[in-house]
Amino acid sequence: MLAIAFWNVHKARGANMMQGVVSLAAAIAANQAWSGPDGEVLMCLSEPGTLDENVLRNQLNLIAPGHTWWCEKSFPERFITLGTIDRATLSFSGQKSGCLPATVSRVNGHNVISPYELWFVHLTSPINADDASGLQTAVARELREAVKEREILRSNSATIAIGDFNMSPYSRGMTDPTTLNAAACRTAAKGTRTVRSSQHNYFFNPMWEILGSRTADQQPGSFYRRYDNSAIFWHLYDQVLVRPELVDRVVPDSPWVMTTAGTCSLLTPRGAMDSRFSDHLPIAISLEI
């Protein structure tokens, strides 16, 4: 089992950001329901700012012993990736469309099994755009084409994309057949979609199941902001998409939005975002791979 996590740490502005990241990663590795008996974790931090990957690695190996943690910052310092899985099983190939793609090879001894394509995503924010929906659609279509190109190049369509898409699950950029074509239904997502004689491959978007009221074990969004033109306050901008080949490997009750990092709450007592950390909450998914 592997836990894949993503956190937009917003240039690590909070004074407690290092502690938060270390506590979060350690908690995921320690929870066998999330990361399996071997504590297998792969995590990406977006907008890491001045967060020092060497200090982070040393802190992880100190706080969460029993694993060999690695950390590295990508050029031009848009992402930090870290994990407990064998670093040699990951092949990064440079950023594309503002995202960080990699091929991850699950291995059995020296034999490669079940390779899959992984995209850590941070799409452009439409916040100051004249046409927000148009920008979201354009960047989603660009990501779709980059994913398709990589799947053809690698002869592998077992793809997972996780990160800050800067749009809601129901946005046109997520659901339109010419963009990411991300369906809420896992059964429908196992097929293909034909629109105007063109065939489109689906993604399955399990984040739809998170939308709704906050409960003791469910957080309805990963980002909080009151916009003047909307009654929606909690926004689910951080999402995970999986291709049909990986749908059945998604662990039940996964993915989830995390409101704590270990014993540390990422929310205020009133349930708002704690500004000592990021303005986003981390998300994670567990896969039986």
Score class of each variant (00 low, 15 high):
18 M>K: 11
110 H>Y: 06
136 Q>L: 03
103 T>Q: 13
190 K>M: 08
45 L>H: 02
26 A>C: 13
121 V>F: 06
55 V>I: 10
176 D>P: 05
14 G>H: 06
160 I>V: 15
241 L>F: 04
61 N>Q: 08
143 L>Q: 04
58 N>V: 03
113 I>E: 15
146 A>E: 05
262 G>N: 13
206 P>E: 04
109 G>V: 04
93 S>H: 13
99 C>L: 02
129 A>Q: 06
251 V>G: 02
192 T>C: 11
243 R>A: 10
22 V>R: 02
238 D>A: 07
67 H>P: 01
251 V>S: 03
263 T>Y: 09
212 G>W: 10
128 N>G: 11
21 V>P: 00
229 N>C: 08
80 I>D: 01
193 R>A: 06
101 P>E: 00
92 F>L: 05
214 R>C: 06
78 R>P: 00
79 F>K: 02
113 I>S: 13
219 Q>D: 02
233 F>K: 11
16 N>L: 09
195 V>M: 07
70 W>R: 04
84 T>Q: 01
203 F>Y: 08
110 H>S: 12
76 P>V: 11
31 N>Q: 14
30 A>E: 15
191 G>S: 09
180 L>W: 00
173 G>A: 11
269 P>K: 14
136 Q>S: 12
155 S>T: 12
181 N>K: 05
37 P>V: 10
35 S>H: 04
121 V>Q: 03
179 T>G: 03
25 A>N: 12
209 E>R: 15
238 D>S: 05
210 I>E: 07
215 T>S: 15
7 W>Y: 05
96 K>A: 14
197 S>P: 10
287 L>F: 10
134 G>I: 05
22 V>I: 11
44 C>F: 05
282 P>L: 02
158 A>Q: 12
107 V>Q: 14
21 V>S: 02
86 D>E: 15
133 S>A: 15
214 R>D: 06
136 Q>H: 10
282 P>E: 04
135 L>P: 05
207 M>P: 03
257 V>Y: 01
132 A>P: 14
104 V>E: 01
57 R>V: 00
128 N>Y: 12
263 T>E: 14
65 P>E: 05
